[in-house]
Design a binder for these strands. Structure first.
Lengths: 342, 342
DNA sequence: AACTCATATGTAACCGGTTACAAAAACGTA
DNA sequence: TACGTTTTTGTAACCGGTTACATATGAGTT
């Protein structure tokens, strides 16, 4: 059908015996062209398998029809599901998603954001709210809308976030353990120095521990990467350190599953000997043994809403509108009253 | 620092008192500019937070510095890990990844590929090998290199694939069950009409069953989506239908975990009462109870190699070079000899 | 001083579209 | 038939860079 040579609008126009403007119209606003002309042009386009040069279109029209998405990781399936949702909305709006993965590195994230701005994305979806103010200035300077996900940002900051409250979620998890009667609770979470979501959850842990015991023992905190094995190792260390532990709050399900597995390997029964609460409610949390008590976060919904709000902002030219989404404690089989209270 | 107004190379040039060509050189080939001039220009660039307009750069230089990646799903973490690998390689080569998610729909996939071609990606990474020949013609017509992943394509087809052999993997899994002494084996797999990987694995099942029993019972095959719950439902149906089943080959780990959970709920012990083999070796396969016997596929390695080969092809202008990657049977706790042979 | 040659910079055509505006064609009406 | 309107099409400036080529500058040689 199509030959090796790349076709341009001028060639199509010439062959159809019309001007380039007419070809452009046929592609963008067919109703504005006489049906007979349109048909003739369409035939030529079809015959050559002509696809308009989206880059040239972007340059000329100064709309890129693309948005940038920066996430810390894809393999952590919790980000995958919001990404998938964003992707779906963007796709059906005719937008392409330019993906950046920051691997939890602020420097890399900044580089990616610059790259995306250089590509003149029409909008930006970011993960987490913590970054250097000049980076926000840079984004503002380009006058493109953005929304922050996975991290609630105060209204007043003028940085719209479509997210849930990580601190609140952490409190719900901890409160659950407290209500069950646990006092000796440890924490396994992500690396707070590069992850403001983990930091919020950790803050919830600390505050609740102070509420319970008047003091929070920092030695009962383990920070690690989002991998099953890291959860396992952290759990092992905690058990070694304090035999009297009755519960662990794992600030994400991946680490919780690792911890769960370690307990089992050590002959500890969950929840009889030790209770475990996760965070995220990954699909797999219903398939562990026992099933995981966890905090359900609306990852997919958040992705959809973030994308929707971003497109609204792109359309109206105003700033995106943030929103706080609800979260739930999902009680399953991995938590119960501690032994001593049975 | 930077004002609301967008800056162009001409403004920078004017302010630095040089020509636009010089600014362009400072950005692309600093060594070709006198240090004093360069410094002056860089200062102006810095002061305004100027980022060159990547779209204009692409148009003028006819390189987009982007590649397209089309996958059927992100949430299935097996695609996530190859995607992450591709992303990493691309990023460090200064390329941006344009992501398309086809949701296992051939029509949507075609639309996405057209969109990516229109955006003039410098190369394309596709998932699976099966698509309409005219679509391949379209890609060839644009003269850009591509590589197929997740599906081995015959050398002769001139469609380079960086992949492993799904059929072989299926045979390894089935052979394992056969060697253990199983005869009544069921299959749970993906939807073969839209997934050529599932089709290959299914073919392996059928061939091995014929090898074992002289015939393959199609009633023992369940096709479903990649979700835990679908694996569970399929397993339930199979158990209802044939009590004498001693093993199930689940052509992916997600469904295998669902099936495992269903067995447990029904009071069947794995592997004593029933053996289960998965496929993919997701990280979580080591965290089920019992741990999952499965086929390890080199998802990450495949992503890295696919990207590397694609960039080689982009650089040389030749077609990409395919490669077959090895796979392994990982025997864990979910398989054993059937009861009758104990 | 005159001439070469290498290096640094500038000029302008070009990449492939969009779109404001002008021109032409078609239509309705007095 | 002539004229004002509306509809359809064409012309050309523009989007913001790259890059081939031309020109200017300066060092080195005789």
């Amino acid at each position: 059908m199509q030959s090796r040579k790349r076709h341009t609008i001028r060639e199509i126009a010439h062959e159809a015996g019309v001007s380039i403007a007419t070809v452009s119209r046929v592609m963008n606003n067919p109703a504005s062209v006489l049906p007979s002309t349109r048909l003739a042009v369409e035939r030529v386009i079809e015959r050559h398998g002509y696809l308009s040069h989206a880059i040239a279109v972007s340059l000329a029209s100064s709309r890129s029809l693309s948005i940038g998405l920066v996430i810390p990781s894809i393999t952590n399936s919790i980000y995958a599901s919001s990404t998938q949702a964003i992707q779906g909305i963007a796709q059906s709006a005719g937008y392409t998603v330019l993906l950046g993965v920051s691997e939890f590195s602020p420097a890399l994230e900044e580089k990616l954001i610059r790259q995306l701005l250089a590509r003149r994305v029409d909008g930006l979806i970011l993960t987490g709210g913590e970054r250097h103010p000049t980076l926000y200035d840079l984004i503002d300077g380009h006058g493109i809308p953005f929304v922050v996900t996975w991290k609630l940002v105060e209204e007043s900051s003028r940085r719209p976030s479509v997210s849930f409250d990580n601190y609140k979620g952490g409190c719900m998890a901890m409160q659950h353990l407290k209500d069950l009667g646990h006092r000796k609770i440890a924490l396994i979470c992500g690396r707070t120095e590069v992850n403001d979501r983990a930091r919020e959850r950790r803050r919830a842990y600390v505050d609740t521990m102070i509420e319970i015991n008047g003091i929070a023992d920092l030695a009962a905190i383990r920070e690690a990467d989002f991998e099953f094995d890291q959860g396992r190792v952290a759990m092992r260390e905690l058990l070694l350190q304090d035999k009297s532990l009755t519960a662990v709050f794992c600030a994400n399900d991946i680490q919780a599953i690792g911890a769960l597995s370690e307990c089992e390997d050590q002959g500890l029964r969950v929840p009889e000997d030790i209770s475990i609460v996760g965070f995220d409610d990954l699909p797999v949390a219903q398939y562990t043994k026992p099933r995981l008590t966890t905090i359900r976060v609306p990852a997919q919904k958040m992705g959809e809403l973030a994308a929707t709000r971003l497109f609204d902002a792109i359309r109206t030219g105003a700033q995106a509108i943030g929103e706080q989404l609800p979260i739930d404690l999902i009680v399953r089989g991995s938590t119960s009253r501690p032994r001593s209270l049975e």
